[in-house]
Design a protein around this nucleic acid. Sequence first.
DNA 1: ATGGTGGTCATACCA
Length: 266
Amino acid sequence: MPFKIATWNINSVRLRLPIVQRFLEEHQPDVLCLQETKCPDDQFPYSGFRKLGYGHIEIHGQKGYHGVATISRRPLEVVERRSFCGLIDCRHLSTLVDVDGRRVLLHNFYVPAGGDEPDPEINPKFRHKLDFLQEMREVRPAGEANTGSILVGDLNVAPLETDVWSHKQMLNVVSHTPVETEGLETVREGGGWVDVMRQHIPPEEKLFTWWSYRARDWVLSNRGRRLDHIWSSADLASALGRIEVLRDARGWDRPSDHVPVIAGFG
DNA sequence: ATGGTGGTCATACCA
């Protein structure tokens, strides 16, 4: 410690490489967890990260869809590339990083978006999302006393009323339906995970990490959602220094629809 | 109720 970790759904790592590099240069996290890399493993742009000092890169990617990557200045060890719901989708990667003698287990997640119709009976993508959240309950902080745990990623659920622009108007919209918000809270509470973004920023305050590409003017309408999350084990949560949601990145050149979230521990 | 934009990969599919 100190240890700085960031998470960002970048919606194509190859197309977005210039702004990811800009982010790394300006914010210098120890570890960056990416989601929606949309990149086969043999085409991952390793050198673009290595030349910035991020020489430790572990990936779990596939052609066209999904894909996660964990990019680090400190040595990393892969723990697991886990498949969920019996599918080959690349949506998870866990790694172990040594932070000045203390071990930190990092889970990098990309939870299914769930399609448009919030009814598992008629929408298989929503069924898949609910099943995925159910299976995620098995993911808990490491049991060892000398190992802290962090879970980050695009969880595609905005759990609190203030995590969406309008709770009332979003109640039947995928990402904020009760079955999803309760499902995600069960995962978090069951594991004893702490929502460190909300530990730092009071739940009364609106907080978004994603703004749709489809808005005419995302700043003016500000119809955002908090879909990206950083959770930690209780021991690490007590060492939380700061949280930053890099809203500015939504206005960068050829942006992702998600912005980076950074947590500093220790 | 509809379509709005942006990604992959070359056609629809996904977000």
